[in-house]
């Protein structure tokens, strides 16, 4: 379990994260959403120990991430937004580095590379950005880590690859693994992320499961417009409106509409979810 308490971080004088407190439970695929510059990448790098907290604390199963102890690192894989080109074949890279993660499976790496239709015999410095990203995603999932943090994993992937990514994540993530995926492209990850964390400048606006969201908010896809809607938007074939769910009706959560609703009514939504 990951416990974050009163976390604060700043770049020089400029504060990025302030008093962030939350808990990430095991066996869930968290979606980390937020506008540009709210500190999503910073939060991920703090969680994996690439940066040190300025105030507060992070506890990952009793480990302080910044100490970067091997017992902590072997339970974690961080896939950054930009991945390095290496002068090695993908399969050689996997063999050379996979041995550091105890549960790494080379056969799984090849299977996922197969799903992505990526050639493991190709040199990584001759791959396109998308191919390189798919190689690292395959490696991350093949490590079978307890914690996998991915920063914008679908950036640079073509349309079929995004579907392949969803397939790979749902098929190859073990039940006790916790994934934290930061993204702007919510449609790419709809149906696989649950719970959802929405980060604002120096605050967590929402940290709730899809079931909780559906319980507290109602997503109306009918064309009937109501003035009480917190958010409404025209979508192809109709419209979508979001209301506080007063009648306990079930509805399908639209993450994009949720994100916009939360941003339009920050305090109101925080109030609804704190009850």
């Amino acid at each position: 379990m990951i416990k974050i308490e009163n976390l604060g971080f700043s770049y020089g004088e400029k504060p990025v994260l302030k008093n962030i407190t939350m808990t990430l439970e095991e066996g869930k695929i968290y979606g980390l959403l937020g506008e540009n510059g709210v500190g999503k990448t910073t939060l991920l790098t703090l969680l994996c120990g690439l940066k040190n907290v300025k105030t507060g604390s992070i506890d990952v199963d009793g480990h302080v991430p910044y100490k970067r102890e091997p017992s902590f690192l072997s339970d974690l894989y961080y896939l950054s937004d930009e991945v390095p080109e290496v002068n090695m074949k993908a399969t050689d890279y996997a063999k050379n580095y996979g041995k550091f993660w105890e549960k790494f499976e080379i056969s799984k790496f090849h299977e996922i590379m197969g799903i992505f239709e990526n050639d493991p015999e190709q040199k990584m410095n001759r791959m396109s950005f998308g191919q390189l990203k798919k190689t690292y995603i395959s490696f991350a999932l093949a490590c079978n880590c307890k914690y996998i943090f991915m920063d914008e994993p679908t950036n640079g992937l073509d349309i079929p690859s995004k579907a392949q990514f969803r397939k790979a994540v749902t098929r190859y993530t073990s039940e006790d693994s916790t994934l934290l995926i930061s993204t702007h492209q919510v449609r790419d990850l709809e149906n696989i992320i649950d719970p959802i964390i929405i980060l604002d400048r120096q605050d967590v606006l929402l940290n709730a499961s899809i079931a909780e969201i559906s319980e507290k908010l109602y997503f109306d896809y009918s064309n009937e417009r109501k003035d009480s809607a917190l958010y409404s938007e025209m979508i192809p074939g109709g419209s979508i409106q979001v209301y506080p769910n007063t009648s306990c009706e079930e509805s399908k959560v639209n993450i994009e509409a949720l994100f916009n609703t939360v941003h339009l009514h920050k305090e109101l939504v925080k109030g609804i979810f704190s009850k």
């Binding site: 790098t45 994996c48 690439l50 091997p70 690192l73 072997s74 974690l76 961080y78 950054s80 550091f100």
Partner: peptide, 8 residues
């Protein structure tokens, strides 16, 4: 980042 994350 990749180098720092190697479990050693």
């Amino acid at each position: 980042s990749t180098w720092l994350m190697i479990p050693a």
